[in-house]
Amino acid sequence: MSERRDLELIAELVPPGSRVLDLGCGDGELLAHLAARRGCTGYGVEIADANIPHCVKRGVQVIQLNLDDGLALFGDRSFDVVLQLDTLQHLHNTERMLRETARVGRIGIVSFPNFAHWPNRLSVLRGRMPVTKTLPYQWYDTPNIRVGTFADFEVLARRNGLRILDAFGLHGGAMLRRWPNLRASVAVFKFERGADA
């Protein structure tokens, strides 16, 4: 997600002037971008010590928390947009986090490595776990404790009463809307809480 173009494509999903919560905000690059270009405000949540000073230097308000502890700090619908980019796959309690995202924000935007991207499929067919630019780790030392696919997320979203507003794949800085489950290394979903959720 560090690629500039990917970041811009995702930033375009965020309505100007939104109040944003960025879960797993890293060094605050996206929030700084959203503040400067789209007049957004809000907070980042980040666990890594090293990232906190980077956020602060950028003027990004950052709160150091472990997302696996939940989002009790944030009230219902207190943000226009909750971003969870390249984060979901690191969490133990993925499903709860997704529900929390929908509770705290009007709109949720998530991205994660799409395990069904064709080179990954090839690798598994050859009998080995993939090691790629998007999934650069060996199976035994990866922080990505969840592997899922574009298609899997659609099922999970439905299961949790989330209404998908937009979904596409990203690869090489391009937005892919045809066959994203096969062609995209990264899956992006924009959703809101369904009426019955």
Binding site: R19, T41, Y43, D49, I52, C55, V56, Q61, V62, I63, Q64, L65, A72, L73, F74, G75, S78
Partner: peptide, 21 residues
Amino acid sequence: SREIVKALVDNRIAVSYAEID
């Protein structure tokens, strides 16, 4: 400290929070 942070967030006040291990 998180109680303080929560109170600030509730007010949409600019706050950063570091929890040093």
